[in-house]
Amino acid sequence: MPVQYRGVIEEHLAVRSHAGLFDVSHMGEIEIRGPDALALCQKVTANDVSRIKVSQAQYNLLLNEDGGTVDDLLVYRLEADHFLLCVNAATTEKDTRWLMDHAEGKVEIRECSDDYVQLALQGPLAQQILQRVTSMHLEEMKPFRFSFGDVSSIRCLVSRTGYTGEDGFELYCDPAQGEKLWNALLEAGSDLGLQPIGLGARDTLRLERAFPLYGHELDDHTTPLEAGLEWVTKFSKGPFLGREALLRQRQEGVRRKLVGLELLEPGIARGGYPIYMQGHKIGEVTSGTMSPSLRKPVALGYVSRKEAVEGDTVEIECRGRKVRGRIISLPFYHR
């Protein structure tokens, strides 16, 4: 996946207004199957996997004993006892080992990233474009549902999911058919403003929607409560790794929290830049960019809890220069 095709801003705006096609084959896939597959999923993740039926997908987190985040992922329930996990590229190996280390009973774990090409078709015109090359009933497919079908005569898993904040689909197919699928989709959308999208716009799109990026907003030492992902964490489902630590943290209150920031002066806040309030350092930026949709600089960052009040003014040190900013509500961009 290149950083850009025609330019980050143009690509970003194309996804918001029309549609974009992403080659996200770098993402990792792991299969879990067997009578104890569900039990393993429940044990190592924060969300309640028993709530999803076959043909549903779920956003989830792999947690460690401290409640830190091993990875964030999508869980696809292929069959009652067969799951496909879509994980981050850089963490695929770590995740696979983590799953194997915690597996009990009759469960088979297989890293299968090489079995899939993954394309994402995202944007308000995504359904219209995809429908031109498939007879699947897309209008009936709700968000976080998936089914198998032929797209331009290529067998695909098609799910109504994405990482842009727009309507859209993610398609998984045999790598031998990947190029053909890519070309078929691009052609199907050529008169509707569909563009190929690079890594740069993938990042600005997810950032405007405040979707976390592993390694930035999430890591092994960051809990879902700090990251604003309490909604993913289902304490009621019973025991899971990290549950005790998270319950304790919830009771004591988190010491730092992910917040949205806008800059009130020219500049761009980037990951690692310190955040100050009245001269005291209160946190650090995790991701930042010039928002192409809002045409202003925005950032995500962790700040100590007691300072994290919406509307408060802060200063962000951008390459030695203090730039005024303000804590604002998330997401930055609403569809």
């Binding site: 950083v3 330019g7 980050v8 801003i9 740069g200 990042d203 500049g267």
Partner: peptide
């Protein structure tokens, strides 16, 4: 790529060969 922020020196400032005198930021990098 798309340049979104420019930092320039002020009039009267002295600049020396090979030293940075400003910065350009694109969406992705500075």
């Amino acid at each position: 790529g798309d340049i979104v922020f420019v930092e320039l020196p002020e009039v009267g400032e002295k600049i020396s060969k090979d030293d940075p005198f400003g910065s350009l930021e694109s969406v992705k990098a500075v």
